[in-house]
C-alpha cells in the first residue's frame, strides 16, 4: 500500500489533501456561515463617515469629480470603492501594507482596536486583504487618519509629505498634478478612507479635523484681514 500507485494516489494524493481541506478550510467556512457577507451597497449605506469623505472629495476637486463621477450618490461611492479596491490589488499595495491589527506587539496602541472576523465579512474582502508583509504601516484603521489632500499628494509623490518614504510614486492616478486626481485616484482615496471607518467607536473619525478647502482658507484670511482693519 505504501509503495503502490493506488496507495500513493488515493491515500496521500486525494485522501490527505481532502482531510486537510475539510479540517482547515471547511471548518472556518461553516463556523462563519451565519455571518452575512455584505455587498458594497450595504457597506456604503450604513457608513456616514465614508459618504462624508466622498463628498469632501467632490468639494475639494470639483472639476475632476464632476468629470469622472458626476454627482455625490451612494451608487457612485460604491463604484469608487470597488475601483479603489481593484487598484489596491492590481498595484500590489497589499504586498507592502497589511490589513489586520494583531493583539500583540502593542499594535492596538499604534493603530486602534484589534481586527475581528465581522469586519472582513464583505465583498471587498474577497479575496481577503490580510497581507503578509509590512513595509509600510497597517492600513486597516487608516480611514480618517489623514485628510484627502494629504493622500492625494502622498500618492502623487510620497516623499513630498513623508521624507525618506520608499513607497513608489503613483503619478498615473492623476491628470498631471496632485490637485487633479483622476478616476483611479479618487477611487483609491475613497477606498483608503473607508478602511476602518465602519467601526462604531473610532477615535480618528471622532476627532477628525478636515484640512480646510481652498475657499474656506481664503474666507478665513479675508475675515482675519477685516478684523485687523477694524481694530
Amino acid at each position: 500500500m505504501f509503495e503502490s500507485k493506488s496507495g500513493v494516489f488515493l491515500i496521500a494524493g486525494l485522501g490527505f489533501f481532502a482531510f486537510a481541506f475539510l479540517s482547515n478550510a471547511l471548518v472556518p467556512a461553516l463556523m462563519y456561515r451565519d455571518l452575512p457577507e455584505k455587498t458594497t451597497a450595504q457597506l456604503v449605506e450604513e457608513n456616514s463617515n465614508l459618504m462624508y469623505q466622498f463628498e469632501n472629495l467632490a468639494n475639494r476637486y470639483p472639476e475632476q469629480f464632476e468629470k469622472y463621477y458626476g454627482e455625490v450618490t451612494e451608487e457612485k461611492c460604491a463604484e469608487a470603492l470597488e475601483l479603489g479596491r481593484r487598484t489596491y490589488v492590481s498595484e500590489a499595495c497589499w504586498h507592502c501594507h497589511s490589513q489586520f491589527v494583531r493583539p500583540v506587539s502593542r499594535e492596538e496602541d499604534r493603530w486602534g482596536p484589534v481586527s475581528r472576523t465581522e469586519e472582513y465579512q464583505n465583498v471587498l474582502q474577497r479575496p481577503v486583504m490580510f497581507g503578509t508583509r509590512r513595509i509600510g504601516p497597517d492600513l486597516s484603521r487608516e480611514g480618517g487618519r489623514r485628510g484627502n489632500d494629504w493622500h492625494a499628494v502622498h500618492f502623487f509623490q510620497p516623499t513630498m509629505v513623508s521624507t525618506g518614504s520608499p513607497m513608489p510614486a503613483y503619478p498615473w492616478f492623476f491628470d498631471g498634478s496632485p490637485d487633479k486626481p483622476n478616476k483611479r485616484g479618487i477611487a483609491l482615496i475613497t477606498y483608503v478612507q473607508w478602511l476602518g471607518s465602519w467601526l462604531e467607536s473610532y477615535p480618528y473619525y471622532e476627532d477628525f479635523k478636515p484640512i480646510p478647502l481652498p475657499e474656506e482658507i481664503k474666507e478665513s484670511i479675508e475675515k482675519e484681514a477685516e478684523e485687523s482693519q477694524e481694530s
Binding site: 489533501f17 482547515n24 474582502q125 481577503v128
Partner: peptide, 29 residues
C-alpha cells in the same frame, strides 16, 4: 504521483474558492 494530484487540487482550491465562494476570514484560511 502525489505532486501531480496535489498541484492540480491546490491550484484549483487557492484560485477559485477565495474568489468565488468565500470572503473574509475563512477565505484567509
Amino acid at each position: 504521483i502525489a505532486a501531480f494530484v496535489w498541484t492540480f487540487l491546490t491550484y484549483a482550491m487557492g484560485n477559485f474558492l477565495p474568489q468565488y465562494w468565500l470572503a473574509g476570514t475563512s477565505a484567509g484560511a
